[in-house]
Design a protein around this nucleic acid. Structure first.
Length: 730
DNA sequence: TTACTACCTGATGAGTTCCT
DNA sequence: AGGAACTCATCAGGTAGTAA
C-alpha cells in the first residue's frame, strides 16, 4: 500500500516536495545543462544499466533517464529494478549523475513529442517498454508512460493530456487494472478529450497473467489487431470519485416505473353472446361490483361445471379440460366477494336442487338395492341347488343388480383440504370446483420448498390428469381425471409479498389475474336475471359424460375444425414470439396461454349453448377467435399489470425496491447501513442490497461518494448520493 | 572498505470507525 | 456483538550515500 502523505511533513513542506532539498542536500537540475557530461551512472552493486529511457521537458530539455538494471536475485532467479537517474547538484559538490527521483510533477515519457504532434493520440503504457512497442507499431499514436510505470502515476504531470485522445494500455493482471483506473481518473481530471482502453487481455485469446502490449508486439501482432482491441474505457463504479462533480445523467426509468399499469377494459361485447353481456352487466350492477369479477367467476364456474363432460381437442394427442382458474385481485372494498357471489349464489341454488333430486334417486336406489340383495340370495340358493342336482346353473336375475349408487353432486366447495377433496372427487367423475375468499394463504403454503404435499395435487388438478391419493389405513383413492376449478380473491399487497417471497411460478402462472380499477360506488338499481343464470348453469351441470369401452365415464372430446386449428397455430406462434421477450412469472404465464385459449374457446362455445344457442359439435374459428381476442386484449395485459413485479429480473426488482425506498425516505444521500437498518423485505441483507445498489449506480440514480475517513482512520462509510432528478420526478 | 545514517518498503499490531 | 476496512506507529530488512 502506498502512503499518500508522510506524517513527518507539514502540508507546506509537501507542496514544495521534490524541489525542496532533502536532508543530504542533493537536488536534481532540470533541465540538465547542455555542458553536462553524458550519463555515465554506474550502480555500486548493480553496475551498468541494461537499458535507459530518456525523459524530456515539453520543449525538449533533458530531465533525466529511467534505467533498467538486471541482476540475479537471492534465489538465483533473474530479477530487475528500475531507477530514475538525474543530474544532481549538492552544496559544495560537483554536479553528477545520481540515482534520484525526478522532481515532481514528473514529465511523461516523450513529452517533447506532445508539442510536435498536437493531434496525435496518447497511448499510455505501464512502463517505457510498452510505450516504445506502441510507438513502433502504431505510427498514429505517441507511446508514453508516467516515469517508473505503475508505481506512482499520480506524481506525474498530466496537464499535457488536456484535450487529447488517451488510450490506456494495461497489463493483464490486477496491478494493471488498478493502474488503468488510476490513469483514467488522472486523465479525466486533466481534461482528456476521450479515454479508451487497450487491455492486455484483448491482445491474445489466452493471454497469460501479466501479458502486455510489448509481449504482443514481440509475438508479431498486427497494428490492426491492436486497433481492434481498443474500446471505450469502462470506469469502475467504486472509484467514481470525480463523477460526483460531473452532472447527473437521466436516471434509468426502469427503476422508477409506476408500480401499477392501467387495467385493460373488459371486452364484453366482443367475447360474450348478447344474452350473457346483458346478464353480466346487470349482475355486476346489482352487486355493485366491477363486471370483471363477475366474468372471472363465470369463466371459472362454467368451466368447472362442464368439467369432465366435454373436453377440447385441438388435434390428436392434445386435449384440454375446460378449467380456468381465476384470481380476483382487489382491496377488501373493491367488490371481489359480491362480484364472485353473483355466480356462486346461483350455483349453490342449482347445487341444492340437484342434491334434492339426487336424494330421491338415492332413496329409490336404496329400495332397489334391498330388492337386489334378496334377489341375489335367492339366486345363490338356486345355484347351490342346481349344482347339487347337476342341473344347469340358472342365470343371475336382472333385479339382483341395483346399478351404481347415484352420486350426490358437489359443485362448489369452500376452503377444503386435499384429503377431503379427494374423497369427494372419487364420487364426482365430472370434477368440481373450489372457492376461496382469500387465496394468499393457500398459495403461500403451496410453495415448492414449504414441504407441502398439496402442491402436486393442485398441479394435476389444473390439467385433469390422473391422480392417486394415499390414505392412512385405507385403499388409495384413484381419480382418473382430476379436474378442479379454482376461483378466489386476493389483496394486492398480499399478492405482492407472494410474488416477492417465492420464485416458484408453477401454481401462480395457472391463474388468470383479474384486477380492474375500483368501480364507482353507487346504489344498485337493477336486478340480475336469476332465472337465466340458474337455467344456464343447470344446463351445464347436466351435460352428460360418455361411457368408454370399459364402461367408465369419460369426456366427450370436442374437436377443433380445420380453420380453428390454423387459427390456433397462429396464436401459438404469437406466444412463442412473446416468450422470447419475457422472463420469470410472465414467461410461465405466456407458456400456458395456448392451452388457456383452447379451454376458453370450449367454455365460450358452451356458454353460447347454455344461453339457448345451437348444440356444440366442434370448435369453430368464431369460438377460438373470441377466446384468443379476450386473451390478447384483456388477460395478458392483466397479467402484466398484476405480475409485472414478478416478471422483472431479480436484481431489477431489488433496484426498484431500493429506488422506491429512497423516494419514500426522501433521502438526498444515505449509507448502505441506513438501508439495512430499515430491515425491509428484499433489502434486509448485504447480499440483497449490493445488487440493488449496483443496479441503481449503473442506472445513474445514485452514486457512491468517497467519505473522508475519521480523523483517526476507521472503516470508511459506504455513502451514496441520490440523483436530484428522481426527487424532482415525484 | 567499513560503519553509520537516511530513507524506503513491507509486515505487524493496535486503534478507530462503520458495517453487517 | 462481532467483523471488516481503514489509519497510524513501529519495526525489520534492505539500499544509497557519506564519512572515516
Amino acid at each position: 500500500m502506498t502512503k499518500m502523505f508522510d506524517p513527518r511533513f507539514t502540508p507546506e513542506e509537501l507542496a514544495k516536495a521534490g524541489t525542496a532539498p532533502k536532508a543530504d542536500g542533493r537536488r536534481p537540475v532540470v533541465p540538465v545543462p547542455a555542458d553536462a557530461p553524458p550519463m555515465d551512472f554506474r550502480h555500486t552493486k548493480l553496475d551498468k544499466p541494461s537499458s535507459v529511457w530518456r525523459y524530456t521537458t515539453a520543449d525538449g530539455g533533458l530531465v533525466g533517464y529511467v534505467a533498467r538494471f538486471d541482476f540475479k536475485g537471492k534465489d538465483g532467479e533473474p530479477d530487475k529494478t528500475y531507477l530514475p537517474i538525474t543530474f544532481c547538484e549538492a552544496p559544495g559538490k560537483r554536479p553528477a549523475w545520481m540515482a534520484k527521483a525526478f522532481p515532481e510533477p514528473r514529465p511523461l515519457y516523450r513529452l517533447h513529442e506532445f508539442t510536435q504532434r498536437p493531434e496525435a493520440a496518447l497511448l499510455i503504457g505501464e512502463g517505457e517498454k510498452v510505450a516504445d512497442a506502441a510507438a513502433g507499431l502504431l505510427p498514429e499514436v505517441i507511446g508514453t508512460t508516467p516515469p517508473g510505470g505503475a508505481k506512482a502515476p499520480s506524481k506525474a504531470d498530466w496537464a499535457y493530456v488536456k484535450g487529447r485522445r488517451v488510450i490506456i494500455a494495461t497489463d493483464a493482471d490486477k496491478p494493471g487494472r488498478e493502474f488503468g483506473d488510476e490513469v483514467a481518473r488522472l486523465a479525466r481530471e486533466a481534461g482528456a478529450a476521450e479515454i479508451l482502453h487497450l487491455p492486455g487481455e484483448e491482445l491474445r485469446s489466452d493471454a497469460p497473467e501479466g501479458y502486455d502490449l510489448a509481449d504482443a508486439v514481440e509475438e508479431g501482432i498486427s497494428a490492426d489487431q491492436v486497433r481492434r482491441a481498443i474500446r471505450a474505457y469502462e470506469f469502475p463504479a467504486s472509484s467514481d470519485q470525480t463523477a460526483a462533480e460531473h452532472g447527473w445523467g437521466e436516471p434509468d426509468p426502469r427503476y422508477l416505473q409506476p408500480q401499477l399499469l392501467e387495467a385493460p377494459v373488459l371486452p364484453l361485447n366482443e367475447v360474450f353472446a348478447p344474452a350473457w353481456v346483458s346478464w353480466i352487466g346487470s349482475a355486476a350492477e346489482a352487486k355493485g361490483a366491477p363486471a370483471d369479477y363477475v366474468v372471472a367467476g363465470l369463466l371459472s364456474v362454467a368451466g368447472a361445471m362442464i368439467g369432465n363432460s366435454r373436453w377440447a381437442c385441438p388435434w390428436d394427442g392434445w386435449t384440454e379440460p375446460p378449467l380456468i382458474w381465476t384470481m380476483a385481485i382487489g382491496n377488501p372494498s373493491a367488490g371481489k366477494s359480491p362480484g364472485l357471489d353473483a355466480i356462486l349464489a346461483p350455483l349453490r341454488i342449482v347445487e341444492r336442487n340437484a342434491r334434492q333430486e339426487a336424494q330421491t334417486r338415492v332413496s329409490e336406489w336404496r329400495a332397489r338395492a334391498e330388492v337386489a340383495k334378496l334377489a341375489e340370495s335367492t339366486w345363490k340358493e338356486a345355484v347351490k341347488a342346481a349344482i347339487k342336482a347337476g342341473d344347469d346353473i340358472p342365470p343371475k336375475p336382472r333385479e339382483a343388480d341395483p346399478g351404481p349408487e347415484p352420486m350426490m353432486p358437489r359443485y362448489a366447495l369452500a376452503d377444503t383440504t386435499v384429503e377431503k377433496l379427494s374423497v369427494i372427487l372419487a364420487g364426482q367423475p365430472r370434477g368440481t370446483m373450489m372457492f376461496r375468499d382469500e387465496l394468499s394463504g393457500w398459495l403461500g403454503n403451496m410453495s415448492r420448498y414449504s414441504g407441502g404435499t398439496d402442491r402436486p395435487f393442485w398441479l394435476e388438478a389444473y390439467g385433469g390428469k390422473g391422480y392417486s391419493v394415499e390414505r392412512m389405513g385405507r385403499d388409495p383413492v384413484w381419480i382418473s381425471r382430476l379436474t378442479v376449478g379454482v376461483v378466489g380473491g386476493i389483496q394486492p399487497d398480499k399478492l405482492k409479498s407472494l410474488l416477492m417471497k417465492t420464485d416458484d411460478d408453477g401454481l401462480l402462472a395457472r391463474f388468470i389475474p383479474v384486477w380492474p380499477e375500483p368501480a364507482p360506488i353507487k346504489r344498485p338499481n337493477r336486478l340480475a336475471d336469476e332465472g337465466f343464470i340458474e337455467n344456464a348453469l343447470r344446463r351445464l351441470v347436466e351435460l352428460p359424460m360418455v361411457n368408454d369401452e370399459h364402461g367408465e365415464l369419460r369426456p366427450w372430446f370436442i374437436n377443433f375444425n380445420d380453420e380453428a386449428r390454423d387459427y390456433l397455430n397462429e396464436f401459438r406462434k404469437l406466444c412463442r414470439d412473446m416468450e422470447g421477450q419475457n422472463e420469470g412469472l410472465l414467461l410461465s404465464f405466456i407458456g400456458k396461454l395456448p392451452g388457456m385459449a383452447v379451454r376458453l374457446s370450449l367454455i365460450l362455445a358452451f356458454l353460447d349453448w347454455a344461453a339457448g344457442g345451437p348444440d356444440v359439435f366442434e370448435i369453430t374459428p368464431n369460438h377460438f377467435g373470441r377466446a384468443a381476442g379476450f386473451i390478447e386484449a384483456y388477460v395478458l395485459p392483466m397479467a402484466v399489470r398484476a405480475y409485472a413485479d414478478g416478471a422483472v429480473a431479480k436484481e431489477d426488482r431489488a433496484g426498484r425496491k431500493l429506488a422506491a425506498l429512497i423516494i419514500e425516505q426522501g433521502w438526498e444521500d444515505f449509507n448502505s447501513s441506513d438501508v439495512l437498518r430499515l430491515d425491509r423485505a428484499g433489502l434486509a441483507t448485504k447480499a440483497d442490497l449490493d445488487p440493488a445498489l449496483d443496479a441503481l449506480v449503473v442506472g445513474d440514480l445514485i452514486r457512491q461518494v468517497p467519505v473522508p475517513g475519521g480523523p483517526r482512520g476507521g472503516r470508511p462509510a459506504r455513502r451514496f448520493i441520490v440523483n436530484p432528478a428522481i426527487r424532482a420526478a415525484t
